[in-house]
Design a binder for these strands. Sequence first.
DNA 1: AGCCAGGCCCAAC
DNA 2: GTTGGGCATGGC
Length: 260
Amino acid sequence: MSKYQLKIEKDFNLDHIFDCGQCFRWKKEEDGSYTGIAFGKCVNMAYEDGVLTITGATADDYENIWRDYLDMDTDYSKIKAAIDIDQKIKDYGYGIRILNQDSWETLISFIVSQNNNISRIKGCIEKMCQLCGEKIEGGYAFPTPEKLMNCDLTSVRLGYREKYILDTARRVHEEGFVDRENIEKYLGVGPKVANCINLFGLRKYDSFPIDTWMEKIMASLYGLKTKKQMAAFAADHFGSYGGYAQQYLFYYARNLDELK
DNA sequence: AGCCAGGCCCAAC
DNA sequence: GTTGGGCATGGC
């Protein structure tokens, strides 16, 4: 099995990266490493003593896929310094990085995510991949639009979201992917889901998704009441760094006992 | 058991 | 343009 190693000094933590609600296909192993599938490749990532080891990847794979996926060319210390949020919140998720994920996979994954919980979202997506994704070494790739639109998804138990998924798959297959600003035209994509797709799949880093956790934490921290107020606050205080700020706040909120 | 989850659609204002 | 009821499913 090929192996690629890279020294990473700071701003890197696998739990913070893979357990901050931005991705759904990474599983924690008993040794603390993570195994997952993205861009049709299954790898394991382990981070110890400042060294990232990607098992199942070559140097070419790293340069072509994982370097950008892990957002390695972004300086997170600089970003954190520029964001006006409580230092303890930045410290809590110090190793978060915004993954640059496949836009199609992100589109479908966040349609699945609406009014759903992360544990079940992961299960639904894994079932979809097993049902109609291409078999690869280590698991199943995320299905293509054409595969998905022709799939009987009953066993995935997507509930009312099933028709959104099938309709969106058909449209992407037939018409291609719409522009960022038109993401909400897909059935099942509203403001929150569109912000997630733009942030995690389309590199729009000022996107600021507001879900129930963000409502709780922003009400608690800043005394805000409506989503509209929260969006305005984010634009005003975080500006082009909104997406990064959102991830630190979300990760903090989801692990805060008093909000559970 | 009952509330909630990375909300959205659609009809009725 | 805004508001609110209804919504599939299952985690906890």
